[in-house]
Write a protein that binds this DNA or RNA. Sequence first.
DNA 1: TGTACATCAGTGAACGCGCGTTCACTGATGTAC
DNA 2: TGTACATCAGTGAACGCGCGTTCACTGATGTAC
Lengths: 205, 205
Amino acid sequence: MPKRGYHHGNLRQALVDAALALIEAKGPTGFTLSEAAKQAGVTPAAVYRHFEGREDLIIECALQGHAIFGDLMEYAFESGQPSALAAFEATGRAYLAFARKYPGHYMAMFESGLSRHATPELSRAVNRSRGVLERAAEDLSQHIPEGRRPPAAMVSSHIWAMSHGVVELFARGKPGANTPFPPEDLLEAGIGVYLRGLGLVPAET
Amino acid sequence: MPKRGYHHGNLRQALVDAALALIEAKGPTGFTLSEAAKQAGVTPAAVYRHFEGREDLIIECALQGHAIFGDLMEYAFESGQPSALAAFEATGRAYLAFARKYPGHYMAMFESGLSRHATPELSRAVNRSRGVLERAAEDLSQHIPEGRRPPAAMVSSHIWAMSHGVVELFARGKPGANTPFPPEDLLEAGIGVYLRGLGLVPAET
DNA sequence: TGTACATCAGTGAACGCGCGTTCACTGATGTAC
DNA sequence: TGTACATCAGTGAACGCGCGTTCACTGATGTAC
């Protein structure tokens, strides 16, 4: 009874799914509303019953991505507790895992070029995603040998940057296309070195 | 006498310059051949006197970018000699400096989605750019406390990833849009922490 | 210096295409009585 | 249960647009004699 058995069933989500597949295949700018409609078995005009237009569809993709992303990061963060270090490392790993498992979402979120403020809703979603990493960095900061500890926001920015860089440069296309190392190992090793540089993780990894 | 005073003067380079400006403004996928032609004061068909088509124009942009990029990185590398550490840090800084000074080139090189093997010439240019960073990493590796030193290619990949991530996430758009830290400081601090993690740079920065 | 000719950079019109978006419509579904 | 009606998801045709590319052309430049 809830909402089954309409004309299409659930066109809205079918369109989002089609859009995500297309974005994954052709990039966010190569994606077209018409093709998403066709792939959902529907006329382009039908899209306008559910979205304001092309950009609105992409925003929904990014929104759903941030929901999953935030959940995943939060779960990883908590699974590492009470060790701030384990929590932080797990969060970093979750970043790459998300990017690999949901490439369409990832691209919609970070490569579609849409403003973070396109929508209050999107703005909120982005802040939540970022918040998890920042919280992990803050917890971690408490354990850094005092004195010259960098701001937590800087630490989280560094990890975000390295993660994003690994995704863009080494986790796209055919495996081994750019480097002899699997992206997962590359990122984990990079974070390991970085954490050692912060004065944590003296000998391991 | 060399090549002045043609119909246009030097349409080929004028088209490249127009393309670079457009790529910077609208991204590599938003760039259109027609608009580049118009901006150079010429009919779209004229472009085909100098390039095979749209993609060929983008390749030329990337090619010129790699030439500048390679020179800049090499110069930075050598300016830090004979200290392997100084050379490496200078190379990292040169990366970001290039990305900020030549955003159109940077986008054509790393965000246009064209294959590294689109052309033998492009392939060579890419390898040269990458080679400089790898050489810097190798020199640096010699100074790392032996035993558990990561492969040089991994070190250069980490730096490349962090640099690229900083560029994409924090050096685009309005300043301060994403972080309270200037991208230069962010990257320099990140590389500093990373190098300390490698066992170099014990106390400074 | 002057004329005849070859070259070839750039023109302008045309092409087929797929895009995002609009609009009046139609027809299946859900609701009231 | 059966009929009349309202809703509204999806249709199909049409729009104006700018794209990349092609083609026969034209006209300025450079060269030969």
